[in-house]
Amino acid sequence: MNLTTKMIVVLTVLTMVAGGLLSYWDGITSPRIEAYRLEQLKQAIAEVLPDHESYDEVKADGMILYIGKNSNDPEPVGLAFEAIGNGFQGKISIMVGISLDFKKINAIKILEQLETPGLGTKIVEDPSNKEDRFWFPNQFKNLITEPQIDVVKNIKPGKPNEIQAITGATISSVAMATILNDGIQKAKSIYQLKVQ
């Protein structure tokens, strides 16, 4: 066997063995990865729409609307969708549960963020606040979205559509409000177009 043939044979065999091994491994792991992803999604929707029993998916324009339903209620109990936008450093992705008229946020859950550890990450959890570690995300519970969500600094929010910014992480706080405002507008137009 000359050298060229040997090189071809060795690399071919090697890549084939590697490919076979990987496809076998993929068969084992991908169901688990997919199951985990689905479980996370369900959990997030359950968190932002606690009343729902099942949901329908409406896909449009790169966004998925989850319409929450309850067997006791002929009307949907609310909507959930994922709002994505730019934070301080990277993308922030938020699961939003909202009323059918898009006027009141039920609750939110942050799915992904790359904010500054210890500062911007307080949008998820604030270990320095001993009374309520989740004071920032909790502000969005029952928040009025009209005319839009506003951010105030260093004072307690006075109006039902205001949230208080995190000290030292104003940009992350404002980004949250912007992402939600934009996401709600988009979800609203999709909902009116596709569902109603």
Partner: peptide
């Protein structure tokens, strides 16, 4: 190239294992 194929295979195995 041979080394890289072998290494990449095991890296993918490890990556999928952690993800799963």
């Amino acid at each position: 190239p041979a080394f890289i194929v072998i290494i990449a295979t095991f890296v993918t195995v490890a990556d999928r294992f952690l993800a799963a």
